[in-house]
Design a protein around this nucleic acid. Sequence first.
DNA 1: TTTGGTGCAAAGCGTTTGCACCCGC
DNA 2: GCGGGTGCAAACGCTTTGCACCAAA
Lengths: 135, 135
Amino acid sequence: MDIKKQLTQHGYKLTKPRQLIIDVLQDNHDRLLSVESLYEALDRAIDLSTVYRNLEVLDACGLIYRVQSGDKSLFKLICQTDHHHHLICLQCGSTQVIDYCPLPELGQIARQHDFEVAAHTLEVFGYCRDCRTRP
Amino acid sequence: MDIKKQLTQHGYKLTKPRQLIIDVLQDNHDRLLSVESLYEALDRAIDLSTVYRNLEVLDACGLIYRVQSGDKSLFKLICQTDHHHHLICLQCGSTQVIDYCPLPELGQIARQHDFEVAAHTLEVFGYCRDCRTRP
DNA sequence: TTTGGTGCAAAGCGTTTGCACCCGC
DNA sequence: GCGGGTGCAAACGCTTTGCACCAAA
């Protein structure tokens, strides 16, 4: 994986705690995690402040994707660098990338409103098949 | 306005502080406010905890629309009860309702992924004409 | 008169920071 | 060895809560 390359290019080192955090994130690359769940997955062996600082670092390297769900912030590693949206399961937190993006329509609407689009968010929440069929 | 009716139907009273909060929200019905800016608009004459509690009450009555922008939570009174999305100015916080909703496309995509859509968010951030033309 | 509402102060909670020590590179 | 990284503890900011008093209905 070129995560290490990304880090060193930004002047960051690859320490043991950092590697562990990345491991957990890679194991859950298709799932959104909260800080809490990441911390637990690390068996609380790494200080919470270190977890937060590393999320900042990964974010600074453009490796993290963040979503706000209700009042908590969720994140995952970015697999593809291009812009995309997700189907997010409210039960298990699993995510599926979708190739749909409303930007063309939004551009047209924004033009009608004389509005310059800088960014947009689109998140779809619901229930994946596994969670729906599970008893 | 039937806000009072909505409140009483839910078993809430219309007190002076509550009325003042609603006044400010109505004056800014086309603009997203933060808790802080609402508090300031009230000249800090009402306790912050009261502001928070009233936002809860208004939310419980379905009168409030909330958005997460970065790390802060913004809100405004709901004018129309039907589902809709906004163009949100990053400079002045003004909002414009758009009549576009990606739900049809999302439904189709979700079906392909065997995913049951429960909710979705779409927010468009950018700059309104006034903020772009202002020096 | 009853019951929800308020201000005040304190607590809660997730997140950030200061600091001394540690360890990749 | 240098400069970033870590754990620990304390601070922080936003939000919530307990409580005695107040006021809408």
